[in-house]
Design a protein around this nucleic acid. Structure first.
Lengths: 206, 206
DNA sequence: GTCTATATTGTGATAGAC
DNA sequence: GTCTATCACAATATAGAC
């Protein structure tokens, strides 16, 4: 897995290397797994999506499950990589808003991959699933740290625990993977701002 | 499908009829579909869960997909049945809070079934999936009606559309199917109250 | 690095006895 | 209503040629 190259190529710079077939397979798999589910997607479909035979996939990956596992790992690597710098030591409402926007932006910009991690995780072997769950829990702990510090600083209400606040927050943010459309009326940034504002200020008039 | 008998039997009254095998199969299927997914669950597992052979299931249902479809239909029937009476004509914050509690209570009390509807819907045939999506959209329209009326009455902020408010609300509520545990520290009622309060009043200190 | 051919296993569903 | 036996097919994965 060559790091960043899984992403859809942006505005190509001069020496952007062409994505490897292995990476193209990851992209195709994320798309198919999110739309149809892991078990419903055949290796032949995955191959066909990148222009090779189904069996040729086994030159790049040992098993179909390896692809799912790779996607889960990469999803959590990116989430942590992008959110952790913002989460460390942050303790203000504005810091939390930034974390919210980074989380939403990350999961929606590579929505196929992150949705696959969040919902197809269950198709992994026990050992691998436990490992992914551990990493996901670590990520949530990161967010809970921010929430707890803002709360300790008096910025968040104290009648709910940091754990409960964090769960409610991530619930609201994560379900967007099921309905957000790039071609809809909201950009990812607008949506993230909305959700942050709603979580912090609430929906009722003041 | 004999209506209420899908539910786990509560404190049995005197003349409670024993659940039919067909209904037991629905319960077992909801549980398995939520834990492992529709495609990953075999007809042999479903039979075994109720003490019959896999093939015997075909006496009660024509296809495996019929069971999934039945669950989706029943999920939406119950949601609508329980929420609609509260939603009609309601226009106050308290009405909305009641709707929130009814929605959360319904999906979490029969979590297997509602989770199956929400996430396994995609495994239905195009025609059936479209029908389920239609009913789900109707249900969301019901909720959006409440939101819009409370908003028009001045109870909800007007800088976001009723549609956006409703989506954010249902996002926060629905993701609970992934993490709520009966044996956890929150009862369903406590959680519903928390989420309602958070959505309406927000997480920030006032 | 990709192909075709195929081994192997598992699955949904049917037939017919009881 | 449930069983056993089985059909028909689809799927993952491997072998070996190119």
């Amino acid at each position: 897995m060559t790091g960043e190259s899984i992403t859809t190529p942006g505005t190509a710079t001069d020496e952007a290397p062409p994505p490897s077939t292995a990476d193209l397979l990851l992209v195709a798999a994320a798309s198919a797994f999110r739309r149809k589910g892991y078990a419903e997607t055949t290796t032949r479909e995955l191959g066909s999506a990148v222009g090779i035979a189904g069996a040729s996939l086994y030159y790049h990956y040992k098993t179909k499950e390896d692809i799912l596992y790779g996607l889960c790992q990469e999803s959590l690597r990116r989430l942590t990589e992008r959110v952790a710098p913002l989460a460390e030591l942050s303790d203000s409402i504005d810091d939390l808003q930034a974390v919210i926007e980074a989380h939403v932006g990350t999961i929606l910009r590579d929505r196929d991959m992150h949705a696959t991690m969040l919902v197809e995780m269950r198709s992994l072997s026990d050992e691998r699933r436990n490992h992914v769950i551990e990493r996901r829990d670590s990520y949530e702990t990161l967010i809970r740290g921010v929430v707890a510090r803002v709360q300790a600083a008096g910025g968040l209400r104290a009648d709910l625990s940091a754990r409960d606040l964090t769960r409610a927050l991530l619930s609201m943010l994560n379900w967007t993977i099921f309905w957000y459309r790039e071609d809809g009326e909201l950009t990812i940034e607008e949506l993230a701002t909305q959700l942050g504002s709603l979580f912090l200020e609430g929906a009722a008039t003041r």
